[in-house]
Structures are given as structure tokens and as C-alpha cells.
Design a binder for these strands. Structure first.
Lengths: 338, 338
DNA sequence: GCGAAGTGTGGCAACGATTCCACACCGCGT
DNA sequence: ACGCGGTGTGGAATCGTTGCCACACTTCGC
């Protein structure tokens, strides 16, 4: 544990201290190839006494692969992505890999820039919540395994781990319809990706199942951020005084909707029923607790990590695989008969 | 943008395609040293046509420093740490650095293991929410700049970016005392680190200021997790039926406290006033909104990143520096006269 | 007693990019 | 003509680790 003055100890230093060659020291330390027990012990002792830490950079250069997996996500501050990252980190860490997080803030250019640096770092695999097809193409074009998580690009040739948004949204909407609601607002912040599209699709399917006409003016497409969702909810309510229920397409939107309902002193569920996609802790802390579609977010991340590890190790080859995880609708107190 | 079959293009390939030597190609691409304008153009063209991405690993080996900053945090799923990470990532990213996240889950061994891998990766700097002194010592012993963020080890010889917990807690407690509360419970999950200690200290100072006797039985020290906090809150309430207010030492504890109050159908603030340290979005969504001490979490991370960048560049040298950020008490509806 | 198989070890060439360094060429002032 | 400073280029060493290969020594089996 003695700290060597300025320079860090190299394997050469260790070898010299143990009276062997660098090659032998390497074999003794890594366990690849022969090394006499006595030598092994001597080298190990020398290494610890010098505080030797092998240089992963040199090792990666030689082995031509690093132990870093790139993770591109949109916004760490959104608990959804944070949980996703946590799930990824846990599985990667257990397998001896580290996670390099690139936050693209929903910006395509930053996504591309991030991917370029990951490429430069020669990461052996990546997990992305894709924004544009370009980023994925760049990676796969260079032969880097990519796993898309949460959403998927249409033209995608990657593995993907997704939540069945359509199914979850259909269930939640059906619940409202069963309660007799006929005018159900749908608030969503994006319809570019499979998440927004899938949830809208589920909503429409449920309407069709119940033979309720789909009214596109009930769909409020809002800008990103809870503030925008709040404003849009207000407009929606003004435009449609006959609304009896609202479906919020994700946790951020739900936050905005909730704020607006609170501001207007609307009583939930007496005046209006509410369901949200993407359950979050606050939804059980507010009164009434919000009925929500829970996504297995951490498992989503974990599964993505497993998939990318399998690709990296070559254990999994061939056709892109898509893994679907089922969300679960949880009825709480924010919904009641129309 | 042509993808080269199997192998990735090296600078040698680019050089050959441009009809120059690797050295010249390197100079043309990096801008270090002479390179004729015409050559520069040719090399650049060759690089893009081959889809050349410089190998950061080789570059790091040669330059003996990488562009990866290690970030060791306790729990990405806690919004506090997620925000912290987001703040860090933003500043690092803008400076051209990437963030390697190690989640230690509050476990000292995992912290140490994480630090060891960071060391192996030859990161030029690290940002940690420290658990044990050992990890910091290991890093500083190897000459790696460390910035402690959120909390600080007592024996620490590192830079640190901290929130003035004591001050914030004092203000929040004083607020309760001014409202006439005399029996104020303090629920906290740890007293090993400067955060827990500081908040307790602020609580006690406020009591002293108001000449209210400190009663250690009002301090509930709970295990980690909201569930534990809820249970402990229940016990605290049973033990002290005369309690008129509760101070929750952080967002997780506050969650547990809130759940328990809800479960018992206690009305806030009629039956009990509540303040929390570490403001979170849910605290304004519940009814009544929770009075809380807001920490500038993202700025905390950003500042830590700035500090570590300054150390790495050598722009900042000498004595460890400690930066204090001031929290802000926000009065909301969860507190009223005793 | 001799090849073969099994143990160990050190030398050396990579991995891919980056610098020194030497050198070459040009123009220009003396 | 000569030297000199400014441009521009290629050669070669280097970063720290690994892994192939050659070689040495031991131990067997026949």
C-alpha cells in the first residue's frame, strides 16, 4: 500500500521488484498462462507493496476492447431515465463493466456527438433511448452492438427492450370506459417515438373496443416539460367542458396535468378522473392516489444490459431481438364512475 | 461515410489514402504542428470517406490521460443523486469530458471496488459522495484529484462542494419554533456523514436559540429507505403523543414520514406540522404542499464538476478548497401555529 | 537413454496514436 | 554563395500491457 512518489507503478516495476520479466508478471497477475506458485506469490506481493494498479487503457488497447458500455439517455433528471440507468448500471457492474452516461437532453445533435465520442472510446456495446436513426446507424455501421431501450426507431436493425405501451394504455383507457367515461382527454408530449405512438394506439384501441368514436380534438399534443403540459391541460379543459377523464401519457405530463387540476381546484375523481402512464412514487403520495400504468423500469434497464452483454460476448448472434415487458395497470383512487 | 468492411480504419489507413505519412495525418487531424492547407484538406477528406474515428484508447495511452471523469454516487434512483449526476454531466460534457458512473448503493466495499476500477481507467479526476475515508485516500494517494460533493469525510484532504445543512436545518426548525412548536420530532436515516450531522446540528442550534431544551428521544434514527422511515415515524408518534411537528432530514425520510401521516389520517398542518430537508417536486404536488429546505442540487453537481476540471487542468492548485452553497427554506402549507 | 509431454520463463512484437527529431526545401538578406 | 529562419514532412520511439514464440528444464514412459 506504499504510494510511489510521482509516477504510477507499471507492470515493469512490479516485475523488477519480483525479479522476473514483465511477461511473467503479467501471467502471474492475470492468470493467463503458466506461472509457478512461488513466483505468483512474489509478484502479487510486489504488486501490492508498490500499490500497482494495472492500466486499463493499455490493456484495452492491446486487447482491442474496453470494459465501458455507453449509455445514451435523454434526461437523467426524469426519474424514469434515472431508474433505467440504475437498472443498467447494476447489471453492467455485476459483470465487471462500467457505464458511461451521455445525456442528450432530447437533442439530436448532442445525441450524435455523444455517440461519436462513444465510438472513439471503442465501447464494445451501447444502450440507447434513441432520438434519431442516424445515431444507431453510425454505431451499427461500425459494428458496435446497440440495444434500444424504452423506444425504438422504425427502421431499426437493433435489439430492443420495450414496454408494451399500447397494451398498457389500452387497459388504462378501458378502465375509464368501463366506468362510463366517454369523453376522455389524452395528453401527450411527443408522437415521434414508439412510446407516444404506442400509448395513443392503445387509447384508440380501447375506444374502438368500446365502440366509442375517436375524437382527435381530445388529444392534446404538448411541448416538453410539466409546465407545458399544465398549460395544455388548461386549454383542453376550456375547449372541452364535457371532459370527464384525462389520460396522461407519461410521468412528466402527469405532473403538469396534476398541477393544473390542483390550480383549478378540480376535485379528483369527483369532477374528473385521471390515469397516468408510468407510475411514480408521488402518485401514491398525493390525495387521491393516481391510478397508473406501472412500467418495470429497472427491469427494463437490466434486461437491456443483459442483452448488450450477450451481444458483446457473442453469446447472442443473428437477427435483432425485441424483448417486450408487460406494464401493469394499478387502479387507485383517482378514477370513479362518470 | 463508407463503412469499411470488418476492421475500423486507423490513422495509418487515412494517411495511406491521403498519400502522406501517419505523422502528417495526425498533425492534420489534431491541428498540433505544421500541416499544409492542401494536405489538411486531403487528409480530412480521406478520414471522412473512410469513416475514421480516432481511437481514444490509443490516444489516452500516449497522452497518459483520459477524458473520463469518475463519479461515485450512492443511489441513482434517489432523485437527489440523479439531479447531482445531471449537473455533473452537463458541465463535464460541455468541457469535452465523459462521466463514468459508479453506483455504490451505500456500500463501502462497492465504493472501494468502484474506485479501484476508476483508478485502473486512469481517470484524471473524480467526484464522489464519500462513504468511507479509504476510497478518497486511495485516489489522492495516487495523485488523482477528488472532489467530495454533498458530504465530506472528517479527515478529508479533498476539495468539497457542500450545502450548508446546518444553516438550512436551523432556519427550518426556527420557523417551527416561531410558530410556537416546542415538541419537534427529528427523523433522520444516518448520522455518520456531514449531511445528517449538519442537519441535526442546525436543529439543535435553533432549539438553543429559542431556549428550548433538546430532547434526544425526539430524534428518530432510522434505517435506510422510506419504509423504515415510515415505521420509525409511527413509533415516534406513539412514544410522543405530544409531538406537534416533525422535521424530516431528507427526501427519502420525508417520503416515509408523509406515508405514515397519511396512513394515520393525521391532518397536516392541523394535527401536525411538517418540514423536510431537500425539496422535491412531489412536495408541491401533495396537499398541503410541504414546507421544505431546497438545495441547489444541480448547481451542486455543476460546481463539483467545475472544481474537478480546474484541478485537472492545473488551473487550481494548492490547499483543498471547500465551497458552500446556501440552501433556501421555502414555506408552504404544511406548517402552522402550534 | 531418448523422444515426448508438461512446466516455466523471457524476448519481442504488436495495439494505434502522438510527438520529438532530423531533414529538406524555399526565399531572402548580406 | 552562404547561412538562416520559417514551413512542411517522414522516421522512429514511446505509452503499458499482452500474448505468441522460442527455449530450458524436468519428468516420464518405453
Amino acid at each position: 500500500m506504499t504510494a510511489t512518489g510521482k509516477r504510477r507503478a507499471t507492470i515493469g516495476d512490479v516485475a523488477k521488484a519480483a525479479g522476473v520479466s514483465p511477461s511473467t508478471a503479467s501471467r502471474a497477475l492475470t492468470g493467463h498462462g503458466y506461472a509457478a506458485a512461488s513466483v505468483k506469490k512474489r509478484v502479487l506481493a510486489a504488486a501490492t507493496s508498490l500499490g500497482y494498479v494495472p492500466d486499463d487503457i493499455a490493456r484495452s488497447l492491446k486487447r482491442r476492447t474496453s470494459r465501458l458500455v455507453g449509455v445514451v439517455i435523454s434526461d437523467l433528471r426524469n426519474p424514469f431515465y434515472a431508474d433505467l440507468a440504475a437498472g443498467i448500471e447494476e447489471v453492467l457492474g455485476a459483470a465487471g463493466f462500467q457505464m458511461v452516461v451521455v445525456n442528450d437532453d432530447g437533442d439530436t445533435d448532442r445525441e450524435l456527438a455523444g455517440v461519436r465520442t462513444l465510438l472513439a472510446m471503442r465501447v464494445p456495446g451501447t444502450i440507447v433511448t434513441p432520438l434519431s436513426a442516424a445515431a444507431g446507424a453510425l454505431l451499427t455501421g461500425q459494428g458496435v452492438p446497440v440495444v434500444e431501450v424504452d423506444r425504438q426507431m422504425a427502421e431499426s436493425q437493433c435489439d430492443a427492450v420495450l414496454v408494451d405501451s399500447s397494451h398498457g394504455a389500452r387497459e388504462a383507457t378501458a378502465h375509464l370506459l368501463e366506468l362510463g367515461h366517454r369523453r376522455v382527454g389524452f395528453v401527450v408530449d411527443e408522437l415521434e417515438w414508439t412510446t407516444g405512438v404506442g400509448r395513443l394506439d392503445g387509447y384508440r384501441r380501447a375506444l374502438r373496443d368500446a365502440r366509442v368514436r375517436y375524437d382527435s380534438t381530445l388529444v392534446a399534443r404538448v411541448g416538453f416539460g410539466a409546465g407545458n403540459a399544465a398549460a395544455a391541460t388548461g386549454e383542453l379543459l376550456d375547449r372541452h367542458p364535457d371532459l370527464t377523464a384525462i389520460f396522461a401519457a407519461n410521468n412528466v405530463v402527469a405532473e403538469g396535468v396534476w398541477q393544473e387540476l390542483q390550480r383549478r381546484r378540480l376535485r379528483v375523481p369527483a369532477d374528473l378522473s385521471l390515469v397516468a402512464f408510468d407510475d411514480q412514487p408521488w402518485m401514491t403520495m398525493v390525495e387521491p392516489a393516481v391510478s397508473a400504468v406501472r412500467q418495470p423500469v429497472v427491469r427494463l434497464g437490466a434486461k437491456a444490459a443483459e442483452l448488450v452483454l450477450a451481444r458483446m460476448s457473442g453469446e447472442l448472434t443473428g437477427e435483432p431481438r425485441t424483448v417486450w415487458l408487460e406494464p401493469e395497470f394499478i387502479r387507485r383512487a383517482s378514477t370513479r364512475e362518470a
